[in-house]
Design a protein around this nucleic acid. Structure first.
Length: 156
DNA sequence: GCCAACGTTGGC
DNA sequence: GCCAACGTTGGC
């Protein structure tokens, strides 16, 4: 049974249009440096799971489309690269600390579904994204939440 | 640019 | 094991 997720990206760094232009519309989702998000990536995400693509620090912040998990977790090479912003001196190739998955664009929404709209939807009352102080860059999404957001994004 | 909220680190 | 300090996230 496929699960559903939400990933955040700052569009000034990597937007859904960047994903649409990527080879095979697929990118390696790297740079996650939070243990809770890491655990979800590494232990819970499976090929075929649905991924809501969310633009954070955007104007306005919004869910902008859907993607899929195209490959399960593998070690994130940037943790071993001393020149990378994501370098982690405490990690090792024998026991990598950080992981990433491949994300493939499914479909961009017909229109962005803004954070304000999400907050206004009763069906999303318990959504992780909308919880006070929620900062996880990889989050679980329920099937009902997924359906409600996709309906708005694809059908207006 | 501000600031609330959170995660991580490190001193003790 | 506690907790203060610090860095980061992300909405506004």
């Amino acid at each position: 049974m496929a699960k559903y997720w939400l990933v955040k990206s700052e569009p000034s760094v990597f937007s859904i249009d960047d994903l649409a232009r990527a080879k095979d519309r697929t990118t390696f989702w790297d740079g996650v440096r939070n243990f809770q998000a890491r655990n979800l990536l590494r232990d819970e995400m499976s090929v075929g799971d649905g991924v809501l693509f969310y633009h954070s620090s955007a104007d306005p912040p919004a869910a902008v489309g859907t993607a899929k998990v195209a490959a399960a977790a593998r070690p994130d090479p940037s943790q071993f690269d001393a020149k990378s912003d994501h370098y982690d001196r405490d990690s090792s190739k024998e026991a990598p600390r950080w992981f990433g998955v491949d994300i493939q664009l499914d479909r961009k929404f017909a229109r962005p579904v803004t954070l304000a709209e999400l907050r206004a939807m009763p069906a999303l009352a318990d959504m992780v994204l909308l919880r006070r102080g929620s900062r996880l860059s990889v989050q679980p999404v329920s099937a009902a939440e997924w359906r409600a957001i996709c309906k708005l994004g694809f059908e207006g």
